[in-house]
Computed example of a mutant assay.
Amino acid sequence: GWLLHGQEAILVPDFNTKCQCQILGEGIGFLPEHMAREAMEDGLLITRRINNPRQDSRMLLATQHAATGQVTRWIKQQFGPQGVLTGIYSDLLWRT
């Protein structure tokens, strides 16, 4: 959605790789603040204002109440109070 006409995208497998590529000067892009904060403080990444910023968006997790598969159980557990994903995405979580 942010590519300009004629720009090429560099596809990477995860945000950590994306962050490292940007630190190495292999592209520009958006990163979650918690991932970029240390690199910004160390002067490895810089921030720029953009003319047409997007609104913040929430991450949604929806499952069927009856879903009981191993992956669904793992995801629900990791978004629980002590879960790894809760810690990573704490700034995006909004519980109903």
Rank of each mutant, 00 (worst) to 15 (best):
R49Y: 09
Q20Y: 08
L93R: 00
W74G: 09
R48I: 15
L85S: 05
M59R: 01
E33C: 05
A62Y: 03
I46L: 15
L93I: 08
T72W: 01
R37L: 04
Q64W: 12
Q22T: 09
F15V: 12
L93S: 02
R58W: 03
V84Y: 12
R49V: 11
L44P: 02
L85Q: 04
I23C: 13
E38Q: 14
F79S: 00
I23V: 14
V71I: 13
G27P: 04
E33S: 04
I46A: 14
A39D: 07
P32V: 03
I23G: 13
I23P: 14
R73E: 07
G29R: 06
A67N: 11
T17P: 10
I88R: 01
L31V: 00
G29N: 07
I46S: 15
R48F: 14
T17M: 14
S57N: 04
C19S: 13
G87H: 09
W74I: 08
E26V: 06
V71H: 12
P53L: 10
T72A: 05
Q64I: 08
A62R: 02
L44F: 11
R37W: 04
Y89D: 08
G29I: 10
A36F: 00
A62H: 06
G80R: 06
Q78R: 12
I50A: 08
C21Q: 08
R73M: 04
V71P: 05
C21H: 15
I23L: 14
D56N: 01
G69K: 12
E33I: 03
G83L: 02
K76A: 00
K18Y: 00
V71E: 13
W74D: 10
A67S: 12
W74R: 13
R73Y: 01
S90G: 03
Y89I: 01
S57P: 02
V84A: 13
Y89V: 08
V71A: 12
G83V: 01
L60E: 09
H34M: 14
H34N: 13
D56S: 01
G80Q: 03
L24T: 06
P81L: 07
Q55D: 11
G29T: 09
I23W: 11
L45K: 05
L92G: 05
G43Y: 01
L60M: 12
V84S: 14
F79A: 07
M59S: 02
R37A: 06
N16R: 11
A67T: 08
G43T: 03
E26I: 11
I23E: 11
I23R: 15
R73T: 07
D56R: 00
L44R: 12
L45D: 01
Q70S: 13
S90V: 09
V84F: 12
R48S: 12
E26A: 13
R37I: 02
A62W: 07
